[in-house]
Design a protein around this nucleic acid. Structure first.
Lengths: 245, 245
DNA sequence: CGACTGATTGAACCAGCTCAACTCATGTGG
DNA sequence: CCACATGAGTTGAGCTGGTTCAATCAGTCG
């Protein structure tokens, strides 16, 4: 690993140590909102960035709380969810490296965010980030594009939740996750599943048992192979077909 | 009514008749993205606006098509949906007066839009609208706010679709629709339902029979009263409670 | 009036849920 | 080094909320 762990103590006070985690070298910059910035702008962004890490199962922020920070995920996976008073939970999505949390810049968080595994982020004070954006319409435009894209994904998920069968849901989940990994440079037929079965269930609007049974069924018919902490896609064609669009 | 019907022939060529539908007098301006504009900016917007009407069940645009126009709904209700190849349909939302279609400014439409009843819109060529926005960061910011709000609504809907019961879904639908009418100045305990039962079903991820049965059940226990083309909410408290958050 | 179209109601069915047992790692401390 | 928790995942069996299929009802229009 690199040295950046040293700078991830609570509070993330690394602002003046520019020797590591330089935005210019950031592996996910081009896939992220930062991709819209030139080098001098990147430097200014770095000055307000606070590299931070989160241990598995720790909370980045809570639904309804004042949005003090915004985040850019650089490593690991974050689950974003809403809960009902009685404990029912719906996961809105999994944030992967390159994903920005708080894109909408609203004054309160709409969802709860928790680290699934070990997570690294660039954290920004929302207020600092807002002043940073000011006078950078190209960045605002890029954030708007990203938000529009997220909205589109949310609509795909509504179609999935409202109208697809368990098998279609699971197939779509695997195919989509593989595509997202591929986009950030982790192209492979083996799809890592750092989240547990319950997370997958709460993302797809199913129970843990149905997810397990469906994966087993796909494995039995050799469409996938279940491996530790992941799944190998043996027949993307078959999965694509099951996805129902 | 006013004279604007004269200007709603196919193509909507009213650009040079400024005697009607002036943005400054627009009843929904303050609730819409246009609310961010001053009078001189409004005038310029009016110059590129093409007032248009759509008859019930006609299509404003189709999922996947190149996004030639963006729209601001001024009257009526528009359904926005995605379909699967086999005909299953999920309605993403109903656009009411003041709602903007094409907020995300993407180059292709992500959903299909159809008029539910008689609909009036301000139509803009996407290209014109994009140049209009250019150099108006306050407008872009407002559009970003609106998009963020839509994303938030989409997430609420995901929670509803994935985790709520039929009764909770229908109750939430009625309460939310009433709140939306109220925001645009149509505050009332009687909620108009211009869309059919099938539309409601496809919005809530249910079948038409379940929607009908659930409404009947709510009516039987005097929570609502079913009236022609609408519903009177007799006990918003009970509905709120059923909504489950 | 008859012919639609949309909504309601009834009855049987089933996809996915619930409840419960079991497996399989991983960890812990005596 | 083993005994035994502990937590995640799988599997089975029965149940049920919502669907499916089908009939009926209620407007509305020509």
């Amino acid at each position: 690993m690199d040295m950046s762990e040293q700078c991830t103590a609570p509070g993330g006070q690394c602002k003046h140590n520019r020797s590591h985690a330089a935005c210019a070298d950031c592996g996910v910059r081009l896939f992220s909102v930062c991709g819209a910035l030139d080098l001098s702008e990147l430097e200014a962004l770095e000055r307000i960035s606070q590299p931070t890490t989160f241990a598995p199962k720790t909370m980045l922020f809570d639904q309804g709380a004042l949005a003090g920070n915004v985040f850019n995920v650089t490593e690991g996976v974050v689950r974003l969810y809403k809960s009902l008073p009685d404990g029912r939970r719906q996961i809105m999505g999994f944030a992967l490296p390159g994903d920005f949390l708080g894109l909408a810049l609203m004054d309160r968080y709409g969802v709860t965010a928790e680290a699934v595994n070990h997570v690294k982020v660039c954290r920004f004070l929302r207020s600092s980030f807002l002043s940073y954006i000011d006078g950078k319409p190209h960045l605002l435009k890029r954030m708007h594009e990203f938000t529009g894209n997220e909205l589109s994904l949310a609509q795909d998920q509504m179609l999935l939740l409202g109208r697809k069968t368990a098998e279609e849901k699971v197939a779509a989940f695997l195919i989509n996750l593989q595509a997202r990994y591929a986009r950030i440079g982790a192209m492979s037929v083996t799809v890592p599943l750092p989240m547990g079965r319950q997370d997958i269930a709460d993302y797809l609007g199913l129970t843990i048992e149905t997810v397990s049974r469906t994966l087993t069924k796909l494995a039995r018919e050799k469409t996938i192979l279940i491996v530790p902490d992941g799944v190998r896609l043996l027949s993307s064609e078959r999965l694509d077909h099951l996805t129902a669009a």
